Amino acid sequence: MTHTTTLPSTTPASSKKQRRDEFIGGAKATFPLIVGAIPFGIIFGTLAEPSGLSVIGALAMSIIVFAGASQFIVLGLLAADAALPIIIATTFVVNLRHILYAANLVPKVRHLPQRWRILMAFGLTDETFAAVSSRYLQQNDLRNAHWFYLGSFCAMYGNWVLCTAIGVALGELFPDMTQWGLDFAMSVTFIGMVVPYLKNKPMWACVIVAAAMAIATAAMPHKLGLLLAALSGIAVGLSCQMMLVRQSKQHNNKNNKEL
């Protein structure tokens, strides 16, 4: 559950090739997740106009907001003629999960200039977090890791804006696209993001508890159940990890005494 990263005390100037390789690596690592996000983006574009959002408004939202779940929620609230404060408060609650992502990334980006951290904060999505978390787990060298992050962000950002535009165009040609069941691809994508991390008991405990809590709290308003499920999963996973560490120490101490 925890991982210690290292940063060389003397960081040499990174070559263009190293930065380019990291950038391309980030885009490649995110590509499988992009495939699942494509139908999601297209569906958002098709729903925009029926929900009362103009073509320009839909494109501007994807360019400026860049948050799939929040954008879908906004469409639903717009269709229901919800007040602006309600829309802002609801999307704020839904995006609280990004605080958990950011807390995990802080030790890896604190050495970067402010301009980089601002850009990375804007580009933080579920898919990019999954891709860069794998990068940080596999390599301790952080000198060019932010270029890997940038590659992932640019790939996701370009895909989301492009798919929104495609959805807006297709929405006029195929008004019933929302009935095709394309949103199932996004569920498969999120499952694919989690499976590679199921390598030990704490991670299994975390996922099982989070899934159970998400189902149990599905009826909670403003998607608060998702945040509660995430916090519950983290608490259980961390507890399991601490228990395993304690057992390991006790076992080592017992062996040392016997020796």
Rank of each mutant, 00 (worst) to 15 (best):
A13N: 09
A13M: 12
A13D: 10
A13W: 12
K17W: 00
K17L: 08
F23D: 04
K28S: 09
F31M: 12
P32E: 15
G41Y: 09
L47Y: 06
E49C: 04
S51K: 03
I56V: 11
M61H: 03
I63G: 01
A67H: 06
V74M: 09
L77H: 02
A79E: 03
A79K: 01
A80K: 06
P85C: 13
A89N: 08
N95I: 08
L100T: 01
N104R: 05
L105M: 07
H111R: 13
H111A: 15
H111W: 15
L112E: 14
Q114S: 09
R115D: 06
R117C: 08
L119D: 03
D126M: 08
E127Q: 13
S133E: 14
S134G: 15
L137R: 02
Q138W: 05
Q139K: 12
L150C: 06
G151H: 09
S152V: 04
F153V: 14
F153Q: 13
F153L: 05
C154W: 07
C154S: 02
G158A: 01
G167P: 06
V168W: 00
V168G: 05
L170F: 06
G171M: 07
E172M: 01
G181F: 01
F184T: 04
S187T: 15
S187F: 08
V188F: 14
V194P: 03
P196L: 00
K199N: 14
N200C: 05
N200E: 12
K201G: 11
K201W: 15
M213R: 00
T217K: 01
M220W: 15
P221W: 13
G225V: 04
L228H: 04
A229P: 03
A230D: 09
A230T: 08
L231R: 01
I234L: 08
S248P: 05
S248R: 12
K249F: 07
K254G: 13
K254Y: 11
N255K: 13
N256L: 07
